[in-house]
Design a protein around this nucleic acid. Sequence first.
DNA 1: TTGTATGCGTTATCAC
DNA 2: GTGATAACGCATACAA
Lengths: 322, 322
Amino acid sequence: MVSIKDVAKKAKVSISTVSNALNGRANVSEETRQRIIDIANDMNYYPNTMARNLKVKKTKTIAFCFSQFDRNFYFQIIKGINDCVINHGYDLIICAHHSIEKFLRNGFVDGALVNDKNVSDELILSTASKDLPIVLLDRELKGQHIYPVVVNNYLAMEQLVKELIMKGYKKFSYVSGIESTQDNIERFEGMRDTLRDHNITFLQKHYYHGDFTEISGYQAARLMMISKDIPEVVICANDDMAIGVVKAFKEMGINIPEDVSVVGFDDIELSSILEPHITTISVPKYEWGIYAATILFRVLDGERHVVPNKIIAQTKWRQTTR
Amino acid sequence: MVSIKDVAKKAKVSISTVSNALNGRANVSEETRQRIIDIANDMNYYPNTMARNLKVKKTKTIAFCFSQFDRNFYFQIIKGINDCVINHGYDLIICAHHSIEKFLRNGFVDGALVNDKNVSDELILSTASKDLPIVLLDRELKGQHIYPVVVNNYLAMEQLVKELIMKGYKKFSYVSGIESTQDNIERFEGMRDTLRDHNITFLQKHYYHGDFTEISGYQAARLMMISKDIPEVVICANDDMAIGVVKAFKEMGINIPEDVSVVGFDDIELSSILEPHITTISVPKYEWGIYAATILFRVLDGERHVVPNKIIAQTKWRQTTR
DNA sequence: TTGTATGCGTTATCAC
DNA sequence: GTGATAACGCATACAA
């Protein structure tokens, strides 16, 4: 590996002159600069990133901690983050949670975004610092140098339910995701509270327990059938379950949306590919990524009191509702 | 950021003793070792990765160059790579092509995998070295310290066509991908040669020009219709186009597979979701990732003359063929 | 305009 | 068993 020393030797100057020339500083004559640049190119010289980082304490690199490579919901988010990072002249590295200690704990990166449930709250709390602000996409955690950028589930659900009520729907059922997750809780409460505000009480028996998987939605729909409790509209905590619900109803000869309507959440790719196209709440994934990265850069640029907004999601009306 | 110096000071020993203790070397008494470890934990000390790398010239990190975050075909591959890298006690960073110079050129990583058409052949040729072997997933490039791990398109196509012929198919059409791509060429030649070997000449007029997109497949099928040239089977250079072909035929009231059969390549998720499920050549993506990373580690472990095999893909017979 | 010297945090060599 | 010290490649304050 050719180092600054090799270039200096070949150019018959000192290493500092090489450094100055290559870093565009004023204190070097134009002709020596050009000569040094040519020689450096010639020798295929690239400054050693680690040695430089060790010195300057800025890496111009952002880490994105992520390991759920099997859920393609996230890839538009990555794209947004990547684009934003590049635009700011930084580089992005994506690393799984195993690598956090290695990459985050010691100035390897200037900031991080985390979207990985495998990373514990404690790890985040103990890692975030003035030198390493962290933006969270998968949870709302309070703490110094920590900036959650999450979807406003409650508001999106509120607006959806309001519109459904306006369309005349009165009998709602809900298929939950994993109970303990914040997403599920907020989505459910958004529905329940909005119904209450419109004098519709949501009965516990219309709450079906799912776990965000298609099969759990499928089973919930069959359960509705067995208990002869088909509502006017089934609201699912995500699209996967909505797909399962639709599948079950279709198999049982129940027409959608004539006999029952179905709504999902997330707007995954499949929801507008499968027939019928599913009405769902669309999370603007690309923009989410952009915004999350933007927040990080505002912090890195020294802005005080950065308070992120929540991401606004909106209903996409499609074929599973009237 | 707490450094080894801080730990040494607190433990009232020299930094070398701290280093020795923490790195499990023999020349330090068990009690001082334990005391130092405790203090280090206590102070939340983590060795600075960059300083260490600068010294030892091994980073235990692998880079995967990739930027096509909008094609979910690749994510199973990433998962395979990631799993393999973790298993070897290394860490994986994924970086876009913009960052190659920064991360690959100067000992930031011990090896790299590249699956990014944006990275030029020249860049790869000039970057690969004894200190940085590179495994290629997206092209077959010959060169020192370069190891292509690609799919055996030709063989897969040969086997597919043989079976189709055995099933009685005689009239074949081909919808091409982008002409210049190696994938397209190999897939086409695999078909053409196999037909020839079975005394079936493939006429140029049955070659339809596509570009790997769904719409180009759709248009090719309409063109077949207009020219009244519906074959017994349409072989597409990838699944996206096969999906387009199927869509067009369905719209035109042509029955699949009764009137015409359709075959794709890749086995993307959609091919077994949309109705009818598409017969296609399945690329074992996860295993591909595992194998590519394995090749890299064999090189890193000092094995001489590593010669990668090609990835074997196999036909998945589904509903679009008889 | 150019060169010398120092230090970033670590590991390794070699005294003690 | 322990501690100075050099070196990794670079940037920079300061001397020339």
